[in-house]
Design a protein around this nucleic acid. Structure first.
Length: 266
DNA sequence: AATTTCCACAACCGCCAGTGG
DNA sequence: CCCACTGGCGGTTGTGGAAAT
C-alpha cells in the first residue's frame, strides 16, 4: 500500500503563482489562519496542492518576510551557522529574522557554497590527535543530529581543582560509554558550577569541533555566546544522576532557545 | 540582432517525524 | 502497536532574465 499523495494532481495549477492566487490565499489565511493545508485549496477555491499553498505562504506571502538584499552581516552569519549546523536550513533561517529556509538554501547554493568552498580548505577536526571517529565527509564541518556522538571533552585553561574524570555516554549501550581520563571527583561525573570552569564539549562527529568553532570566534556575539553554551552545559551536566549526553541535546538546545526568542518577540 | 549560456530563485518532490485514533 | 494524516524539511528541477558570444 503506497502512501497517499498529498493531493490529486489532476486539474491543479502548477508553476508560478499569479497575483490573483496570492490574493486568495492571503485573504483566506487572514480569515481562517494557517494550518489544515490539505483542505485549504478546496475551501479557498484555489486550484493548487495544499503543500504548494503552504510553501507559497511560508516563503513569500507571510507579512514578516524580508526579501532580497542579504546583508554582509547576514551572509557571515549564514556561513558560521552552516559550519555549525550543516544544511539545516530551517534552523539557520530561525536565526535570521524574516528570512526563509528556502531563501537561505538558494542563496547558499548560488553564492556562499562556492565562496566557502573556494576560500576554505583549512583546518579540520581530523587533524586533532584526540580525534578517534572517522570523518565521513571532508567538505564541511557540520553537526548532524542523527549521527551525533560526543567523543571528547576539552578543558580550556583548567583550574587545578576542576580537573576531574568525566564519563559521557556516546551511544546507547554501556560499551559505547567513554571515560575521559584525568583527575576528578569520585563518581566520575562532572558538574558545572556557574563560572567555575572554561569547559567545552567537543563533538567530534566527523564533522565539527565545537571548541574549534569557538576558538576561531566563529560564533557571533549573542548567538551562541559563552553564557549560552554554559547554560547548555549546566542543563546537560548539572544532574549528576543523569550525566550522559549526546549531541541531540545541543541541537535541541539551539532549537529551544530559538523558540524562546520567537516567543519573546511575539 | 539573434542565439547560446549562465545564474538566481520559485516551485516541486519525496521522505520523515509527530500525533491521534 | 499499527496506521493514516499532517506538517515540515532538504534536495532537486524548471524557468525566466541577464550576460556573453
Amino acid at each position: 500500500m503506497g502512501r497517499r499523495p498529498c493531493c490529486s494532481k489532476e486539474g491543479l495549477n502548477r508553476g508560478a503563482w499569479t497575483a490573483h492566487e496570492d490574493k486568495i490565499l492571503k485573504e483566506y489565511i487572514k480569515v481562517h489562519g494557517e494550518g489544515r493545508w490539505r483542505n485549504l485549496p478546496k475551501r479557498a477555491g484555489l486550484k493548487r496542492c495544499g503543500k504548494s499553498c503552504r510553501l507559497r505562504w511560508l516563503n513569500y506571502l507571510r507579512p514578516d518576510i524580508k526579501r532580497g538584499n542579504i546583508s554582509s552581516d547576514e551572509e557571515e552569519l549564514i556561513i558560521r551557522l552552516h559550519k555549525l549546523l550543516g544544511n539545516r536550513w530551517s534552523l539557520i533561517a530561525g536565526r535570521l529574522p524574516g528570512r526563509t529556509d528556502n531563501e537561505i538554501k538558494n542563496y547558499w547554493n548560488t553564492n556562499l557554497g562556492k565562496k566557502v568552498k573556494d576560500g576554505n580548505q583549512s583546518s579540520s577536526c581530523s587533524q586533532n590527535p584526540m580525534a578517534t571517529v572517522p570523518i565521513p565527509r571532508q567538505d564541511s564541518n557540520v553537526v548532524r543530529a542523527k549521527a551525533s556522538k560526543c567523543s571528547k571533552v576539552v578543558f580550556i585553561n583548567p583550574k587545578p581543582q576542576m580537573q576531574m574524570q568525566m564519563q559521557m555516554q556516546i551511544g546507547n549501550t554501556e560499551a559505547e560509554t567513554a571515560v575521559m581520563e584525568g583527575s576528578g571527583n569520585d563518581n566520575g561525573f562532572v558538574s558545572f558550577p556557574n563560572g567555575e570552569t572554561d569547559m567545552l564539549i567537543d563533538f567530534n562527529v566527523g564533522d565539527v569541533c565545537l571548541s574549534e568553532l569557538l576558538n576561531e570566534e566563529l560564533l557571533p556575539d549573542g548567538m551562541f555566546s559563552d553564557e549560552l553554551l554554559k547554560e547548555w552545559a549546566q542543563t546537560n551536566f548539572a544532574d549528576q544522576d543523569n550525566a550522559s549526553t549526546n549531541l541531540h541535546s545541543l541541537i535541541s538546545f539551539l532549537e529551544s532557545t530559538e523558540e524562546t526568542q520567537t516567543l519573546g518577540q511575539s
